[in-house]
Design a protein around this nucleic acid. Sequence first.
DNA 1: CTGTTAGCGCATTCAA
DNA 2: TTGAATGCGCTAACAG
Lengths: 346, 346
Amino acid sequence: MVTRPPADDAPRTASSTVRATLADVARLAGVSAKTVSRVVTDTDTVAPATRARVEAAVAELRFRPNFLARDLRHGAVSKTVGFVMGDITNPFYFELGAGMERELHRVGLTMVLTATEDDPAAEERVVGSLLAQRVRALVVVPIAGDQAYLEHERSLGTPIVCVDRPPTGLHVDTVLLQNRAGAAAAVDALTAIGHRRIAYVGSPGDLYTNRERLAGYREALARVGVHDTAHWERTDGDGRDFEAAIHDVLHQADAPTAVLTGNNRASAALLRAVGTDRSDLAYVGFDDFDLADVLGFSVVAYDMREFGRLAAQCVLDRLDQPDAPTRAIEVPVHLVPRGSGERPPA
Amino acid sequence: MVTRPPADDAPRTASSTVRATLADVARLAGVSAKTVSRVVTDTDTVAPATRARVEAAVAELRFRPNFLARDLRHGAVSKTVGFVMGDITNPFYFELGAGMERELHRVGLTMVLTATEDDPAAEERVVGSLLAQRVRALVVVPIAGDQAYLEHERSLGTPIVCVDRPPTGLHVDTVLLQNRAGAAAAVDALTAIGHRRIAYVGSPGDLYTNRERLAGYREALARVGVHDTAHWERTDGDGRDFEAAIHDVLHQADAPTAVLTGNNRASAALLRAVGTDRSDLAYVGFDDFDLADVLGFSVVAYDMREFGRLAAQCVLDRLDQPDAPTRAIEVPVHLVPRGSGERPPA
DNA sequence: CTGTTAGCGCATTCAA
DNA sequence: TTGAATGCGCTAACAG
């Protein structure tokens, strides 16, 4: 296989415990490092015989190019895109990440995953760690009160995309859900069949998505002349303990005939609180969830994969055209009637 | 702030569009690069005044150390651990990843996420890309028929951990579920209350987890004298279309009185096929799933976070003691009775 | 078609 | 306490 004998000082062999480098391969193949580089990266043309020798050496030494070194050369950045999720326990973000990963993979980019655990103080640290790794781009679910600290990085040309929640103090591409319109559509459907006493159970009001959904809920009720909705709104939970809020709102004097749950966790809590066969109560949930179809749970749904795909597309477009105007993309949502939301008031 | 004027040839300033390097900071602070390095990495001692000057320069230039370069220095490897999932659409892997991420984060490691989409041919390519990035360790859900290609990397000292499925042709740490015991426990519980005609619906038999679960099912039935179980087994779907298999097995002449579903997808399919109120059929599912409690679905459950934590721990232990004997960790599973699995045969 | 030189950004010698 | 030289593995620029 190897026509020329390896140089006597070749320090690394197939059984070496040290990782082989370009130079090792070059030595074994009897060529220069640059030629090995040419073969490995498949640039330039290399004589077939030389190529064969190099390839044999690569195989023998199990050479694997070091991307770190490659990327370091001439300020290039890595092939990875950083994704900073919020609460890592929410399947929502993983599906979003899955959609992104799939899209990025198509163009040879990989995804680094980190989470802020929805701790505002953690955001800058986590993001900083990704930037130190020189990620090619950054996709962030903002949780800190301010993202101005990213402005410098953006001006350096790193594509930054905010998803699910808009950033503060930073002007970048965003991909958000049609929160307001979706919630309004759900309530419109309920009022159309006669409901007026409609409750809303969602996350604390300072979270963007919840604020928007609540606004949509109020808008739709205002359209049918219901303006005083405060005592039907429950957004004071800690974001998890929705069951108490649901129990509370359903057992008040002027009990609602319908409920809009502001997210998938609230929907699950509703089912836990009232069971799966409450035919006297209408309900619609924001976010689709597994088995909602089996349970006849009407929801405001959207394509999570599409959400991720759009975020990835933003990244790719920005890499392509760094100076294009920033975009604010809305992921469409639609009402999926499955029974629970089409019941008229008793 | 800066006591000494910056050298006249300082090419980079705060508003520069070029990323500042150690040298830039050194120039601005009027010290050597090494001193900046000392301050940034907080090694060695630096005079307070010098430190202050350097820190001011770091802030002004918004210097961010380049981990790629740092890691390149003397063969060091990155701070990232690669996780190669199987089917990215399965929430199972994401929960596993979440558990790992949390644990790794505690020691300053980040996680790179990639998926094989359960395509055997993709595994080596995906893994190779991670190794080219010089990940510190590798956690893989094996899908290819053979993992011997990883032996060289393992011998180079990269910790490799296989999760959910064992590797072939490679001796490394593994973290697996108690598949066989879990399935057997579920069937034992069913036979104890009188069931004998028990069906099994799972993935194609060549997948390790399914093979084990099927074996546990057979063992438990053999214990009560039922040996001919073939016509109650359905493992010929494509891994997704379980509904047809369920419909088929329930409508055969000698219909089963109970069903064991081999994974979360099969459980969902069962609910879709028979509805949520089949009180004449007993069923237990392998894998817990969201709302199973509300639906009264008895399952063989395990702590997904713990699974991820154990995998991460394997990585950390191996980094710590590269030559310790390999371990085969089993994640305990337990039967969670919720009603559907405790119904005696009609 | 192939080799030489230089340098990416940083940290590890070793000196001062 | 600080600095100068050197090299990690790779590739761009320029020979030959």
